[in-house]
Amino acid sequence: MALAPNMPKAWRAETKPHKFCPGCGHGLVLKAVGECIDELGIQDRIVFGCDIGCSLLSWDFFNTDAIQTHHGRTTPVLTGVKRARPDRICIAYMGDGGGYAIGSQHLVNAASRNEKVTVILVNNCNYGMTGGQMAPTTLPGMKTETSPYGRDVEATGNPTQGPEMVSAITPEGAYVARGTTANLRQLKKMIKKALETQLNGTGFSFVEALSACPTNWRTNAKDTWNFVEKEMTQYFKVGELKVPGEKEGK
């Protein structure tokens, strides 16, 4: 008979149930993050930073130190921590807007400088917290509050290919991957490799996680999974793009 839920040890039970919407992918990504922290035994060394956007709701998610920053600014805050205290394991947690729009210069430059931090970016194709506006990752033709007739790529460009970009600008030693909440075992492995990359100090580590926003997508569970597994993967290829010690393009 199980009396306690099977939460990662690094989760802070006192703040559960967490603040994310029913069916939100953040819970899944943060579960994978928590399990990786447990398995690597680094809970006491973690400095977790969250962006503004839905990711801000994770500020008290873990039994680790955590800093809630500004929209797009988590990467520099955590870079600041890491530069001053290299013994800390720094995770910058953000959404697609934070990483690819307002904070893209920080992502690009942290990656270029090969900062020894781990960026985990949750891609749900829209701005969730502000009410479902078009994001850099909104799919072509996808309806959002600011693309009510569907995203017109002629006018607004194509979905940002984040890991591809980061992979192109990081040197050997960095880790870059795109996982999905539809394949949690794989996503967890990617996050673990990202954190190991930071632990080994070989380079920047970046994982984009394809995730769901049933609230703004206005999808039921079936359509939610369908969108993540079938629609999103048409544009966002799941897999590792750069692994320390391995040739590129795996």
């Binding site: 008979m1 199980a2 009396l3 149930p17 029913p22 069916g23 569970a221 999974w225």
Partner: peptide
């Protein structure tokens, strides 16, 4: 929580955590 003893597994559902999203069903 509520529990259901199935033939091959014990199913425990923590109602205090479940938000009813239905992802599991699918």
């Amino acid at each position: 929580y509520t529990q259901k003893n199935c033939d091959r597994a014990t199913f425990t559902l923590f109602t205090g955590l479940c938000k009813g999203c239905g992802l599991c069903m699918e």
